[in-house]
Design a protein around this nucleic acid. Structure first.
Length: 427
RNA sequence: GGGGGGUUACCGAAGCGGUCAAACGGGACAGACUGUAAAUCUGUUGGCUAUGCCUUCGCAGGUUCGAAUCCUGCACCCCCCA
């Protein structure tokens, strides 16, 4: 059993704990049960959930038992912490579908079949829905002094905002607090971890545990993973980076990490990978001595893609990367191309277009959606921004013929550095 | 209710009878450079069967050989006085 506390500490993963002195000893002296909550607002987790998920993984590897709790009940309400407006309520059907998706992703990170410390995923709706309103008020609500609740940062900030805070959201804290008590009673859980914005909810659970059961529970929060410019990790102009291959392809996932800014890479390596301290520090050094190699980003992208998408996912991401930024496309067949260019818009055309005169390049560019008009296509070609199978073309009146097929039925068009479109010619 | 100002391309903003597909800035796109970064530099930025043609300056009419520019009506916005 390695010293998890020390490891977390040097990685910078400990923001606040409820028992700074006690925890190191407590964690190293036995197998404990730890939980973190996940928000089931979609059928996939996104990069933002990677940090708490990795936290649980670290605890599991250190011999503790992780519980992931999907907030089926709380998800219907929405945590007011850090939110500027109230959330839309979800239907039970949506939630069920979301939970199923999330569970399959967790299996990549946590071990659910390893005996004593097997991870479990629970849904707080299973017990919350059993409660009658009266029972909940009597058993749980009476333990919450409103003046204490009003003092919580998450509540205070919303109260002073224009949007205000609904009674439902105000009650969120009670639900999350009760989760902790329930998990303690059912599974012997004694430690809750979460992002630093969860501090208020975590301590509420600890208080409730003491009042209801006389139990000593612990809490630990980790810093939020943000970029140096303050924005959230995992968000791009085109949306969030998801863990599901269906929403974000392994290639895009890999690319996201490969493009992390130098300043953010050290934190990502520490927070999200399990690399040894010595290796991370060597990478830190390489970012100063040879930044152009981006060894840190490569390692980061590789580690995370392998973890989330498996070795096969990583291999396809690497292959796609090579093609997207490499020279000419050759020696690939239809299947490989279509796989690599999974993210790229494609367009089906009859094979007959290629024969005889061939298909005008400008025409092809417009049909593929890469260009909006012939004029735009003409300009792009003139400026040298158009490539067929990754080879630049200069002639405006270039025509596509069967000789341009790079595989059985595919021609790859590209505009600029990374905008691609696939043309498929079939009968 | 009375008086004044405005509405221009993706956004901001010039133009106030012809040389206006419309200055300039931003954005976007492409090229060079580079680390798939940042910055910088260059080019492009209504459409087309393209030295020409068509559509666009709030909307609808009108004056004129000719209108983004002048006139009339309408719509919306802003300011001042009640």
């Amino acid at each position: 059993m390695n010293d998890i506390f020390e490891d977390l500490q040097w990685r910078g993963l400990i923001h606040q704990t409820t028992a700074d002195e006690l925890l190191p000893q407590w964690l190293s002296s036995g197998s404990r049960t730890v939980y973190a909550g996940f928000d089931p607002t979609a059928d996939s987790l996104h990069v933002g959930s990677l940090l708490p998920l990795m936290m649980l993984r670290r605890f599991q590897k250190a011999g503790h038992r992780p519980i992931a709790i999907a907030g089926g009940a709380t998800g219907m309400i929405g945590d007011p912490s850090g939110k500027s407006a109230e959330r839309n309520l979800q239907t039970p059907e949506q939630l069920a579908a979301n939970l199923a998706g999330i569970e399959s992703q967790m299996r990549h990170v946590l071990d659910f079949e390893c005996g004593d410390v097997s991870a479990i995923l629970v849904n707080n709706n299973d017990w919350m829905s059993q409660f009658s309103y009266i029972d909940f008020l009597r058993d749980v609500g009476k333990n919450f002094p409103v003046n204490v609740m009003l003092g919580k940062e998450s509540v205070k900030s919303r109260l002073s905002s224009e949007a205000g805070l609904s009674y439902t959201e105000f009650s969120y804290m009670l639900l999350q607090a009760y989760d902790f008590v329930h998990l303690h009673r059912e599974h012997g859980c004694e430690l809750q971890i979460g992002g630093s914005d969860q501090w208020g909810n975590v301590t509420a659970g600890i208080d409730l545990g003491r009042r209801m059961l006389g139990a000593q529970l612990y809490g630990m929060t980790c810093p939020l993973l943000t970029k140096t410019d303050g924005s959230k990790m995992g968000k791009t102009e085109s949306g969030a980076i998801w863990l599901s291959a269906k929403r974000t392809s392994p290639y895009k996932f890999y690319q996201y990490w490969l493009n992390v800014a130098d300043e953010d890479t050290g934190t990502c390596l520490r927070f999200l990978t399990e690399l040894e301290r010595s290796e991370i520090e060597a990478l830190d050094e390489s970012r100063v001595s040879a930044p152009q190699e981006r060894a840190s980003q490569r390692k980061l992208a590789e580690e995370l893609t392998r973890l989330i998408h498996g070795p096969a996912g990583l291999a396809s991401a690497l292959q796609a990367t090579e093609i997207f930024f490499g020279a000419e496309i050759e020696n690939l067949d239809d299947r490989q191309l279509i796989d690599i260019f999974a993210d790229v818009p494609s367009c089906e055309l009859p094979a007959a277009e290629l024969t005889g005169e061939g298909l005008g390049l400008m025409d092809a560019l417009v049909k593929s959606g890469l260009m909006k008009s012939n004029g735009e296509a003409r300009r792009a070609i003139k400026q040298g921004g158009i490539y067929i199978n990754n080879r630049r073309v200069g002639e405006i009146d270039r025509r596509l013929t069967p000789a341009d097929l790079t595989s059985e039925t595919v021609v790859v068009l590209r505009s600029g550095k990374k905008k691609y479109a696939l043309l498929r010619f079939s009968n």
